[in-house]
């Protein structure tokens, strides 16, 4: 198992190298002058020339790449052209807000999608099954920005029960500010016993996280349903019934454990994709996460930030996949021991 993980990590290094080369080249091909961006509006030509030397942009491309890679190995992703702050710091500040959203969303997706899939399989071809399938397809096919806006109209404008956006109520944040420990607001509020802030955070979290979870919920429910249908026809399910095992245990332990593989793989992919899916959701709900940070960087042609985020996303993607593979091995002895 350990060897397998190490192998995967070495593989990750190669993936990253390739990825860096591609993004680096792309960022230098696009017709924009980083040195000019660095200086802000209306720079003088001699200033631009000075910055060009300062940033190493006068050197050949491969030398620039070598410098970039050297810095990267030291954990330095460069500096934002606009804010002149380290990229890593920027990512680090915005990541918890996104993870907050994503973790809540994947939790919702799993805890709604799996039971729905299991029940749907158990009640195959009944009304419940049809409704569940309709629900799944709707979830998968509805675009998140549309869903987000519908949520805002219904729950903010008409019903007024949830805020339209943001991470926490401004007033609440002034009266009882959250002490930043982990960067996850809900967790920080819980640790410090800041109930007003906790309540405000959670109510802000609900709409965006449900929006983000919709696609994954549908996909997970569908995947769980189809594998469960297969598993429920297996002989060992008949054996379990023949030995008086309760139907609930058969469904949620004996069968689900066998059906979990594809579901986990799907969930892992969904979670990884959420990092990009969250861009729309964050923009619409004014969520100060990585998505907002990235979109701003794209508008401003802030290429060190874009590259930094691309690399972080790649790492995230590979790490999530690795985590899923490890989970699969835990759930299935044939992978673990075979």
């Amino acid at each position: 198992m350990l060897r397998y993980i190490i192998k995967r990590l070495i593989w990750l290094a190669f993936v990253l190298l390739g990825l860096c080369a591609i993004t680096f080249t792309l960022s230098r091909i696009i017709p924009s002058d980083p040195a000019a961006s660095y200086l802000g509006p209306r720079p003088r030509p001699e200033q631009v020339e000075k910055v060009r030397v300062q940033l190493g942009l006068d050197k050949p491309l491969y030398v620039q790449f070598a410098y970039y890679m050297r810095n990267l190995v030291h954990g330095d992703l460069g500096e934002s052209l606009r804010t002149h702050r380290p990229v890593l710091q920027g990512i680090w500040e915005h990541l918890p807000a996104s993870l907050d959203l994503m973790i809540t969303a994947i939790f919702i997706a799993l805890s709604v999608g799996i039971p729905l899939g299991v029940l749907s399989a158990k009640k195959e071809n009944t009304t419940l099954d049809h409704l569940t399938r309709l629900f799944s397809v709707a979830n998968v096919s509805v675009p998140s920005f549309w869903l987000a806006m519908i949520f805002q109209i219904v729950f903010f404008r008409w019903l007024g029960i949830f805020p339209i956006g943001g991470r926490i109520d401004t007033v609440v944040n002034l009266v009882s500010p959250i002490k930043q420990i982990t960067g996850f607001y809900a967790l920080d509020a819980l640790i410090t016993g800041n109930w007003a802030a906790l309540k405000s955070t959670l109510s802000h979290l609900i709409l965006p996280s449900i929006t983000l979870a919709a696609y994954s919920t549908g996909l997970i429910a569908r995947m769980t349903r189809s594998t469960m249908l297969e598993v429920l026809r297996e002989d060992y399910i008949t054996t379990a019934r023949a030995y008086g095992i309760s139907e609930r245990e058969i469904l949620f332990v004996q069968a689900l454990r066998n059906a979990l593989g594809p579901t986990l793989t799907t969930a892992g992919l969904c979670f990884a994709f959420m990092l990009t899916g969250t861009f729309f959701v964050e923009l619409i709900f004014f969520w100060p996460g990585l998505g907002t940070y990235t979109v701003n960087a794209i508008f401003l042609n802030d290429y060190p930030v874009i590259m930094g985020i691309t690399i972080i996303m790649a790492v995230f993607y590979v790490v999530v996949n690795l985590a899923v593979d490890i989970l699969l091995a835990v759930a299935n002895p044939r992978i673990r021991l075979g």
Binding site: E234, D235, Y236, T238, T239, A240, A242, Y243, Q254, R257, N258, A331, N332, P333, R334
Partner: peptide, 13 residues
Amino acid sequence: MIFQEPLTSLNPV
């Protein structure tokens, strides 16, 4: 009850 297919009658996980 004992079944025909011992290969598939026991839960693999």
